[in-house]
Simulated scan of single mutants.
Amino acid sequence: MTASEAARLTIGGLHARLSGVTVLHGVDLRAEPGELLGVVGPNGAGKSTLLRCLYRALTPESGTVLVDGQDLMAMDPATSARHTAALPQESEPVSGLRVRRVVVLGRTAHLSAWQTPSARDHRIAEEALAQVGASALADRDIATLSGGERQRVLLARALAQQPRVLVLDEPLNHLDIRHQLDALIMVRGLGITTVLALHDLDLALRYCDRLCVLADGAVVAAGPPREVLRPALMAEVFGVRARQVEISPGEYSLWCEPLEPAPDLDAPDVTTPGSVAADLAARGQHAQDLAARGPVTPDLPAPDRPAPDPAAPDLAARGQHAPDQAAQGTATPDQAAPDQAAPDQTARDPAAPDLPNGDLTARSLTASFDPSEEEPAC
């Protein structure tokens, strides 16, 4: 496929509905021959709906899709398939079909009703597999492939169709970073007019010739990537603070971070009423106002409390006494237990025998009698 065979794609006033809801609102867009046009936007912006209109999976409510001035919607299916080929966002594998057979199916648009694929058709399919680096998978059952391998095979099928316009809806899904880069470099080198929907804005900046930004089903910006992905638009549409960083002469990468809690952008058009940035700025100001007020104590009625228990102080004191004893170790014998009566401290004669606990019993008196003090016998 050479650049001279590529077509100019023109989309005018495209409106589309899904389940009674208008999803696209008057989309006007163009892609020059051989150009790689990236379609970006937040989730729900209408990217997949737009691409489905381009390969006739969805009929628009109004508007036109022209390939070199020819109305795509007025073509018969076979003619349309020779003009545009697609890699849908999700595609269920058909068990029992080998990879080589799946790719040869891309040649169907070039065959008559009962015609079988020729040697040339098989050669084109083999070349397409080689282009996406999947030749080693040719004899595998497609149902046994990983998500990334299946994505590469389906891309090969679209290439085998030899279209003038290639429509790729999230073709980098399931691919590791090496195969993502390989796929973008390969698509750029095909010379086919390509419309590509993707979420990676850094790759969009680096590999797309032009970008279209969709939001709420309408085009909000279109043009060269470095002019489109400006900080104001990134804040408004994607809710991020962004900066383009030059990583080598003429090569740029996109640095992004969330716009929370409050944006700090100089661009005056970022904080227009109703914008994402303005909403975030208002939230940030509200948080600052709350912080300036300090803590607020609400005027709440005091809860009902029961009358104090007269025994509570004594119980509390005993509770305090227990940890004090534990901290002091085992109590000595002269320490009276808290719940015992205090010993009798009545004063006594120092010459009196030392009676334990003041217990004047017969046993204690007998034990204290001195025989030397006995009177002589008469």
Rank of each mutant, 00 (worst) to 15 (best):
G46L: 01
S372K: 09
L181P: 05
L54D: 02
V103Q: 11
D324Q: 13
A85L: 07
D339S: 12
Q285V: 11
V104D: 04
A235E: 02
P306A: 07
A362C: 09
P376A: 11
H15K: 05
T332I: 12
V276W: 09
T49F: 00
D28R: 02
D339R: 09
V39K: 06
L315C: 12
G34Q: 05
M234Y: 09
A235T: 02
R226M: 07
R56E: 03
D216H: 11
L166Q: 10
L259I: 01
L66A: 09
G284H: 02
P371W: 00
R123C: 10
P371A: 05
E260S: 10
T108V: 13
G63A: 07
T64F: 07
V21T: 15
D209H: 13
L175C: 04
A221F: 00
P295S: 08
V213Q: 00
W114L: 15
D202L: 02
A136M: 07
I177V: 15
Q131R: 15
A287I: 11
A281T: 07
E90M: 11
V67C: 12
D314F: 12
R178M: 04
L300Y: 07
Q115G: 14
A311L: 15
G148F: 03
A232V: 13
A215Y: 04
S91V: 14
R152Y: 04
E246M: 05
T366H: 13
D121A: 08
P306N: 04
A3C: 10
P258F: 03
A183Q: 05
D216Q: 12
A7H: 06
L233D: 00
Q328L: 14
V219D: 00
L159C: 06
D76I: 07
R348A: 14
L155F: 09
P171D: 01
T116L: 15
Q320H: 14
T22R: 14
R178C: 01
E149Y: 06
V237H: 02
D279T: 14
R107T: 09
D28K: 06
A322L: 14
V153E: 05
R178P: 05
G239E: 02
L360E: 10
S80K: 01
L214T: 01
F238M: 05
L51W: 00
S248R: 12
D200N: 09
V165A: 06
L51F: 01
D141F: 04
A86S: 12
L211S: 03
P371Q: 04
D176E: 09
E170L: 05
